[in-house]
Design a protein around this nucleic acid. Structure first.
Lengths: 218, 218
DNA sequence: TTATAAAGAACTAAAGTAGAACATTTGTAT
DNA sequence: ATACAAATGTTCTACTTTAGTTCTTTATAA
């Protein structure tokens, strides 16, 4: 509807009239709006007139009239929206806790376990998430320890280098680094003592991508 | 009626006008809606005009006017709002986020930084907590990586083997394993490349005990 | 492939800036 | 009232920046 300068000028005029009772001159306006020539004010006012925000008596001094100002949202609505924004940034949500990963059971098989866990909201913004308890040492060099809670985003495929929940032979779910090489899928652990598994793509399915880790001490 | 992008754009325009009084530019819109080119905004606006949701003065800057907003919302917007509702219900615990650990600055010195972060309830049940961003590799073998968020419980002393925030010489805060040996305090890193620091008890103060780790991928 | 959508670059129009000159109105002194 | 000065509004030109439009290229999906 209005450009920032137009808006600023309109509000200045409106304010001045309401406060002082009389309309500011072009020179006063140019100082208030922060431009150095009256001609600019003239142009702005022409624009405002064209859009029916003000009216003027031509060639008369200080003869502007504000017809309308842009309508504002009630303050409490703005407050409400700020609250929601904050809540989105800072809240936690419940996501299902399915069970343990690297335990030899596909995730679907344990999906009935109806536990949930709460995680900060910004960890799980878009998409469907679930949590798994990490079991074993195969990812320790990536800072993923036995007992950690892995936050997983449901997905069917992954990019090379991402840490994924991979289901092998529809029987065994495991957390590994995903690497697609020609006609093989490599599931790479992050631990010198474990070996890379190289599998035919038909044997491996992505069930999710690692999105976060939560660990608890005591 | 409207596609999600169209709806999002329409609401953004409506909001901006109501909040700022002036219409956003195409560049501002493209950032808000999340597309990378103004031409996309142009197309969306043409669509919205065709459907009589907005009006524009062609070739004028910031000259859009919202005529109406839709009664029905696209499905994924509804999903989004459900998430918001859920997030509001699950409002979680706010704890202060002080800054970086192992950066050579005592925690009190950076306590004025008024950021907060949210953590799941069960991570911070009893006591006073704060969060620190981990910097450096000195604890990688304990699965604590550079960039992790460390949840710290405020405390003045610790048991052997606990990971603590230790303040050395009132000058340097660091995250290490705490070990009291006779008349010495050992601050043990969890990384072969780092050495154990052995200090006289008068030089070391416990500022908190590590209670949890939160890591985010992407 | 083909069709479609998004991104990007190039182009055009409008908005803003500045200074000066000019016109009109208003106030003041004669 | 008349003349003049001061204040204020208007017009013009030149230029810079910002914004809207159009077109081409690049991804993406069917």
């Amino acid at each position: 509807m209005l450009t920032p300068k137009q808006y600023k000028l309109l509000m200045f005029i409106d304010n001045t009239i309401k406060e002082n009772g009389c309309c500011p001159s072009y020179d006063e306006m140019k100082d208030a709006v922060g431009i150095k020539s009256k001609s600019g004010i003239f142009a702005l006012i022409e624009e405002l007139i064209e859009r029916d925000f003000i009216r003027k008596l031509p060639h008369k001094a200080r003869a502007l009239e504000v017809l309308k100002t842009p309508k504002f949202k009630p303050r409490d609505i703005i407050e409400e929206e700020k609250k929601i924004k904050l809540a989105l940034q800072n809240s936690s949500v419940q996501i299902p806790l399915y069970g343990k990963i690297a335990a030899g059971t596909p995730i679907e098989a344990i999906a009935y376990e109806n536990e949930t866990t709460s995680v900060p909201f910004d960890l799980v913004e878009r998409g469907e998430f679930y949590a798994l308890r990490v079991e074993g040492e195969s990812m320790v060099e990536a800072g993923i320890m036995d007992g950690d809670l892995a936050i997983i985003k449901r997905a069917n495929n992954a990019d090379n280098g991402q840490i994924v929940v991979a289901l092998v032979d529809d029987a065994e779910a495991t957390l590994k680094v995903w690497q697609k090489k020609d006609n093989e899928i490599w599931l790479k652990p992050c631990n010198k003592d474990y070996e890379i598994r190289k599998l035919h793509p038909s044997r491996v399915k992505v069930q999710g991508i690692l999105n976060g880790i939560i660990r608890r001490y005591n």
